[in-house]
Design a protein around this nucleic acid. Structure first.
Lengths: 209, 209
DNA sequence: GTATGTTTCAAACAAGTGTTTTAGTTGGTG
DNA sequence: CACCAACTAAAACACTTGTTTGAAACATAC
């Protein structure tokens, strides 16, 4: 559990785990409050509704993540164009991501699974919420790529960033299962960090293609 | 609608559309039978349960797809190793995929969205069903990659195929929304075919990295 | 036509959902 | 101590869910 173990954080901890594990619709408030060992009504008391709880779960991740990412982007925005190589930009995205795990164990995997679900969610209402609230950081990220790779057209960069996002989210969201397969087949242990680092050459090569 | 417009296919058509649009749990049998204009009980009569209906929806896609893919793989399995370039292998995957659209309009987008959801589904029971039933075709695909790129280790290929799958599914699953953004921003019309072809250099470069 | 097996239909069922209500319990402040 | 706000607790509410039931309609064979 985290920080203060207040009712709110107990609910958030249980909810983010279960949402990642089973999905939003498949997780009932009774399951959440059962795991968190709090009363059923406290969800509506503290968060208002289930939908608001889902958004709160995302906010806790995204505030941490976008804040750290923003710092890295400010540094990069003052670099000359020829310093903005794909690997550098990817690191600015990955480092803040990995640092989530220092606060709560397994946070990266949970976060990615949540993002994967959010992306597929009903009529995209959650995706809209996320992009409206945190989209500006991703726009800055896009601009840096355009600066570093002026030979690419804007829509090439637009699409390739989405390919990248797809690889990242898809792989990390399923990384628990995939890690088990990989570890069984090739007999070496893999941390989330290893999985991501293995991914960087693939992504960088694609971006420059 | 398709083929015979029997009750079963009317249900399948409505179900695959709604499942792709909203997700499995978020789509009730009443919504499905309402759209299909059939009686509620007919789902349980013809398919047994909702879970079986979901599997039937996947089977209809996967039978078509894996059958065509298998033909392409047989051809490639007789080629010498230096003919097995990433672009060639990707084409063997993409061509059967695109041909789904000739049978039912928008089928590719629906299929990819379903796959994306299946991959994230509850405790992976659907993912297990798919890999158990159609996994052998993907194994053959992996072997071809190993033959074509012997300088890569087996687990590099394992992971890179998953990165690729992530890009493909993620991009095509959200391609309706992304297409709209892209068309608005860059003012050119995009078909699913265009989106995929734009993706091939990115994926091929990553595989060879 | 009668009989038989298949398919459709409307209605009901039991179980689970998010939310609200109302009462009770805290913990600090004057 | 009394008071008030913040919080917790148990129960009930209204509603939707997947599934089952039993009767009606249909088609096909003898």
């Amino acid at each position: 559990m985290s920080s203060h173990d207040t009712t709110q954080t107990k609910i958030l901890d249980a909810a983010e785990f279960l949402f990642a594990e089973r999905g939003f619709a498949e997780t009932s408030l009774r399951t959440i409050t059962g795991r968190a060992k709090v009363n059923l009504a406290s969800v509506n008391y503290h968060f208002g509704s289930k939908k608001s709880l889902i958004q709160a779960v995302f906010d806790r991740f995204l505030q941490d993540f976008t804040q750290q990412l923003s710092v890295r982007l400010e540094q990069l925005e003052q670099e000359p164009a020829d310093e903005l190589k794909a690997e550098t930009l990817l690191a600015a995205l990955i480092d803040p991501l990995l640092s989530l795990n220092t606060k709560r164990p397994n946070a990266v995997s949970i976060f990615m699974r949540l993002l994967g679900r959010a992306y597929a969610e009903t009529q995209g209402h959650l995706r809209r919420y996320v992009t409206e609230r945190y989209g500006h950081v991703l726009v800055r990220f896009t601009l840096l790529f355009q600066k570093g790779y002026p030979e690419l057209t804007n829509d090439q960069i637009f699409w390739r960033l989405h390919y990248m996002l797809g690889s990242l989210i898809f792989t990390l969201a399923g990384s628990d299962a995939l890690r088990q397969i990989s570890e069984a087949d090739f007999n070496r242990s893999l941390e989330v960090k290893d999985v991501i680092e293995e991914m960087v050459p693939f992504l960088a090569a694609g971006m420059k293609a």
